[in-house]
Design a protein around this nucleic acid. Structure first.
Lengths: 197, 197, 197, 197
DNA sequence: GATGAATGAGGGTTCATTCAT
DNA sequence: AATGAATGAACCCTCATTCAT
């Protein structure tokens, strides 16, 4: 009664997040998840109807947290540049902290309609946030700009996830860089240390 | 029908490209590929040691063609702006033409080291091309800029693949937009028809 | 609602009879039975050691009622022909009233020794009743005759259970027919309406 | 090429007949069948889509043989009494020879629509044969009479399957008895040795 | 007595891969 | 080279049963 049920659900979600993220959806067995959660295999099915549904729940928790945190972080901001920077910091840091979960980049199972539907919805909501910031700032083509901004940030995410040398300092420089590039274009960029490649 | 080895290999690659692209790697059975190629299941194994290796071959052929085409398209260009535009057109059009192969976005199998290694190498080579263009144009932070540019283009790719309303005209507008945004930043963008959202 | 033990036991037996009869033993889950009985799954195990034992109890209640009713119905009869007719009416009507429980024809689980033992015993007791009637009537080969009579009645049962058009009127005609056939043989049968097939 | 395929199919059917018949459908594992057939588990699925379909095939082979044999046995008969006797002999002997396969009495799986459909069809065809014999003999109520006759024979089947003392001699006596009873009714039956119970 | 969350053995089915022809 | 029948390891999910509350 002291929340044991809730605990078990979280144990499963945590274990699944870990294993789906590190090994991948298809590579993870329900029994692995149960083992890591310290429960019996059948118990997973008391909480989730199928492996796919569990994957959706894991994804949903992750994505909702992402959006919640972003809303929180944006609250104190007043001007567009600040907001864009906060979005960039949030995006890159969020994934930096989860950079060992490379397999979450691909939200497999590729063919689950419910998961694909949710991911579309998540992307729409994320886009809306960026869109509002750009509209407030009277940016031309806010929709296309928002897409581009997120695209740039997602590339940083790919880099930090697959480049083992990516570190804290680079994270900060890259984040700042993306915001500046977005605002001013590449021809106005000031040379910055750390990109001598 | 002449039974040449080369013929059969291409039949297999074509069938696999189609099925991996439309249905996904895990969802496609070797027997499906053999059926579509009009050959026997066992024959696939005369050409490829495993399903993963076949997937790698499919990916390799696709990516090499991408790079070959890009090299070809860039040859006549002389200045950076032109080159960047050509890169953008090439990137978006290539994926527009293959937009029914949504499952190729995720180069599963997630855990095959050879495939991941090849994708890293491909990305490195693609990046080098963009990098050279930017360095030639004396752009600051060419590496980071190149990453960002590709990120923006990749987001257009996502949009055109998952948005069923995406059409030829939008493709052109979006492509031009990305190049301009990259060069001038969002604050210098001129309002363009077609993005009133 | 008063919570008496007896109440709950009957609730379980009723639910199990319904579900075993309509869906079959293997197809019915203990949780289905508990749901239909309006009690918790675990409670079933306060009354029955296992699913098999519950099935036995259901069967036993059904069969005992069958025999009790038959004894009751036979009491007023004095001559053999009457008694045989009463047996026939009882047999066919009993199953006609339960004709939606087609799965009870097969007293699964096939391998439970206790159930098979009980069914043998039931058949023996039923047979004894018919046997006594036939012996009293000085019928030759009373044992074989009794078996045959029950076989004929059981075929009517099969028909009424699996033929959706079987109705009340046919029931009466068929019942009378079987008794006559048994007594007189097919060559003495008088033509009767309703069987022109 | 020497009929290996056909052989393997028969091996599976034989093994399944044995195990379904002796242990029951639900109690038999596909791996048991494969083991007994001396093949791999997966091979079963090259020949049958599911356990249910295999059960249907086993049943069909058994029933078709039953009908074929019956047709053959009836061919030389000319009058009704002979034919009825041949039917009785065939029915009881067929099951006597298979009396160790008690579980085939219940053609589980109880809920497979294809199996139930086939069993209805089989029963219809068997009934038609008996019906034709009775119509030819101008028996009144041929449909009901046919049902009754089969019912009597089926009861002999039950007896020989579940009564371990049932022997060859009893088989002959019982078979003759059923035919006589059907033709003349119980009141004309002549006392016969062997039924002193 | 009553509950229902937790258990875990069990089995049907899939499919990449092999190899005799 | 080409075939496709055969293999068998692998895994998801079910559900009868238990037991702490």
């Amino acid at each position: 009664m002291s929340g044991t049920t809730g605990d078990k659900l979280d144990l499963i979600l945590d274990a699944a997040y870990e294993l789906f993220g590190v090994d991948g959806f298809y590579e993870t067995k329900i029994s692995d998840i149960a083992n890591r959660a310290g429960i019996a295999k059948g118990t997973v099915y008391l909480y989730f109807k199928s492996k796919e549904e569990l994957c959706l729940a894991v994804t949903r928790r992750d994505c909702e947290q992402f959006l919640d945190n972003l809303h929180e972080a944006l609250r104190p901001c007043t001007n567009m540049a600040d907001k864009l920077y906060v979005i960039a910091v949030h995006h890159t840091r969020y994934h930096f902290e989860r950079r060992k979960y490379t397999k979450l980049v691909f939200r497999a199972p590729n063919n689950d309609p419910a998961l694909m539907q949710y991911m579309r919805q998540f992307m729409f909501r994320y886009m809306e946030i960026v869109l509002d910031v750009l509209k407030e700032g009277k940016v031309a083509h806010p929709q296309w700009s928002a897409e581009s901004y997120i695209g740039m940030l997602d590339r940083v995410k790919m880099d930090l996830m697959f480049n083992p040398d990516f570190n804290e300092q680079q994270l900060q420089e890259r984040t700042r860089f993306v915001t500046d590039l977005f605002l001013m274009g590449c021809e106005k960029q000031i040379n910055r240390p750390g990109d001598s490649s």
